[in-house]
Amino acid sequence: MRAVSAGPGLAQLVLLEGRRLALHPLFLAGVVVAAGGCAAFLARGWSTSGWTVYAGFALMAPFTMVATNVVTLRDHRADTVEQHEALPMPVSTRVGALLTAILAPTLLTVAGLGAVTAYAASRFALDEVDLLVLASLPLIMTALAALGVALARWMPSAFVAPALAVAFYFWTPGDDPSAWRVLMPLNSADDTGAAVMRLPYLLGLTLLFAGAALAQPQRSRTSVLLALVGAALVTLSAAAVLT
């Protein structure tokens, strides 16, 4: 059965889901880890302060990915899929609302990141690469959060997202000079060119994962468009990084 366009409840659903995501225990755990990491690193007065702030905040993204995954899996866990199917709001709209609601934890992250960056900048010299790397953090957050939703739509299992979060952590050695490592979401770039190209790359990943999430159970014009634009951004920026 084909879905129809969003109803008037979409904005309300975005607000409800946004509040739930921002207060989700896994996201809050990520906040605690980020705050602890930043405090510990900054207290040591490391000279590469941009990276230390990055290292603290980057850990929030896998936590948020698992949080969005858990929230998306709510209907499977509670066995409410059929019950909610009999309601007027189509599942594509609900997934769209959840993807939009990712903005809530992201905006909170931006606020926290802004405060910590301002503090770090007052104590240390932040160069251009530092600032570009820090600017990529909210996009890492949106990309992994959208991936959490997409995983739940395509592989409705509670184990996939946590396993991937752990895998991301181990696949991200900071001292590996291989160019392709820069393409790992949690990694970062150490030159301006790669740091710049990671921004459209991460935006592309966000759109690609959002399109994939919306395409289950049925493709729509929006899901295809998001996936195509995302894939184009990912391909072009990855090519620029690797060449």
Binding site: G7, P8, G9, Q12, L13, L16, L87, P88, M89, R94
Partner: peptide
């Protein structure tokens, strides 16, 4: 029930 009301397109918060 509030969540279900949103899915039922009862959008206006106070009425919902």
């Amino acid at each position: 029930v509030d969540y279900v009301a949103v899915l039922k397109d009862i959008a206006e918060r106070r009425r919902r």
